[in-house]
Structures are given as structure tokens and as C-alpha cells.
Design a binder for these strands. Structure first.
Lengths: 140, 140
DNA sequence: CTCGTTATTGTAAAAACTTGCAATAAGGAT
DNA sequence: ATCCTTATTGCAAGTTTTTACAATAACGAG
């Protein structure tokens, strides 16, 4: 498998199309391993695909998130960022300094099962960001 | 206790001030028991306090959230809404139709303890919104 | 390989949200 | 009661995000 794994069949199977814009954005997110703001993604993808526009980036990110190819998550300031969908994890972010750590999804697995049975809702699987105070900031 | 409980001492103790704008916004949120968008809050509070401006509403909501008087939460579209801080609960929202239900915080209590011990972060207590598919939409 | 359908994009403009700064007013001190 | 300090507001302008719609291009069918 080359650098860009082929997401195309995945989309085509659902009646969607693979476009240069989607490829460029996925490519950016596959290289930067962390989450980025729409604007950051736009700037980087623009270099790979001149002519790309901001509305397209916003729409594409939402589209890719709906289809499980990228994962949306909220930054400290409440703004939306995106990262490539990989092995499932969540975040704990420090309210004070913004430092963040990952939490494996397995820790939340049983909670999700519990929520599904008590609520009747299915496929609860969204990414969650928790806010707390990191060890560093606790000494203040 | 009258309709508007006195939040003032709470703020003053931390060196902040109680203002007409803050009172108006709190008043709105205490009456509408559900969460509202900044714009909705602005429109309602404007009637109580003519001259109030939108930037003030945005800043005030963020301020009140920082001080635990209101609770921020994310709507289906990813936009921020606010509700009055009351008994602790979370939300499960339907990805499809937007229907939502509350989840008592007690269900998440043990998870939060677990996260605190494994991560070293303290006072993890943020409101969380989970996304899933509601029973109605499961028949489609 | 060419054509036709329609998902997707760019354009332009609007709506939502944020920021810098001077003017105002809350509330402690006199 | 009045003054002073400074937290908070309004204003005006900026940035970010969304929307409507016509133009474009992906890709299945012939």
C-alpha cells in the first residue's frame, strides 16, 4: 500500500465520488499526524492543489467526517479541528494550558455499551474531548 | 429565594463584577430550561436590556461558563449552545434527526474517576455530548 | 472512447463569531 | 455620598464558517 491508501472504493460504494480536493485534504491529514484547524488544512492543501477554496475545505471535512475518514474534535477554545481517522482514541485537554493526552477507546467501550442499552440509541461512537487540569498546572 | 438567585457574591469573591448584562443573560437562561444558541440568547436578553450587543453576549457566555454558572454544549451541527448550570447531566444526540436525551452524570462518574487516575489530570468534569442514532431513525 | 447524469466545486455574499480599544460603570476606599 | 481603580461594555472592524446557485468534472452506461 502506497502512502495514499485508496479511500475511493469506500466512497464509490456509497454513491459518492473521489475528487482531487478530497485527495489533497486526506493527504494533508495523513501526513500531519495531529489535528488541524480548517484554515491550517486549507493552507497546506492549497499547496498541493492550487485553486482549492475555503468553502470546499469546510464542506469536504464535514463530508469526510460523516463518512468516517476523518475525526472531528473540539479544541480548547471550542473550535473544531480534524485529524485522520485511525485507531480510536479520545482526548483529555488541560483547561489551563491546553496540554493534551490521548485516551484509548477501550477505556470508554463499556460506557458506550451502557449508554446504548439505557438510551435505546445505537452506534454511539463519537469522539469525545474531556477537559481537566494537567499535573503541571496543578502546582499553582 | 426569589427568581434570580444571587450569583453576585460568587463572582465578587473572585474579583469579578455583577453587571446588568450578566444578569439579563442569566435571567434568560434560568427561564428557558433548555440550551440556546448565542444568537437566541442575544435576542431574548435584548428585550430585557435594550442596548445589549452581540459581542457582549459571546464574551459573557464564555465568562459565565468559565465560572461554572452556565454549561456549554455542542449542537448537532457542531455549534456551541449554552444552558443554565444545574444538576449535572450530559446529552445523547441523534446524528440523523437531532433528537436528544439527557444522561445523568452518575452514569459517567466512575469513568471520570478512571480517567483522573490513569491520566493524572484533575477535576475532569466537562459536559459531554455523545452522538448516535435514535430508535425512531433506526427504522429506515 | 464519448455521452449524460448528477455529485461536487467555485464564486459571491451572508451569517456567525472574535478582537482591539476607548468609554463606561461596579464596587471598594475615603 | 463621592472618588478611584479597573473590570466590563459598546463600537467598529476583522476573521471564521455557512449558504445558494451556476459551472464543472467524476464515473457509469452505451
Amino acid at each position: 500500500m502506497s502512502c495514499s491508501s485508496d479511500y475511493a472504493p469506500q466512497l464509490r460504494a456509497r454513491g459518492f465520488r473521489m475528487t482531487l480536493q478530497r485527495l489533497a485534504i486526506l493527504h494533508v491529514l495523513r501526513h500531519e499526524r495531529t489535528h488541524l484547524s480548517p484554515l491550517e488544512i486549507y493552507k497546506k492543501a492549497l499547496k498541493e492543489l492550487p485553486g482549492l477554496t475555503e468553502p470546499t475545505v469546510y464542506r469536504t471535512l464535514e463530508f469526510l467526517a460523516d463518512n468516517g475518514l476523518v475525526r472531528p474534535s473540539y479544541a480548547v477554545n471550542g473550535r473544531l479541528t480534524y485529524e485522520i481517522a485511525g485507531n480510536d482514541h479520545h482526548h483529555v485537554v488541560c483547561r489551563n494550558c491546553g496540554a493534551e493526552i490521548k485516551v484509548e477507546h477501550t477505556l470508554l467501550e463499556s460506557l458506550y455499551r451502557l449508554l446504548e442499552t439505557t438510551s435505546g440509541y445505537r452506534s454511539i461512537n463519537s469522539h469525545v474531548t474531556f477537559f481537566g487540569v494537567c499535573p503541571e498546572c496543578q502546582s499553582s
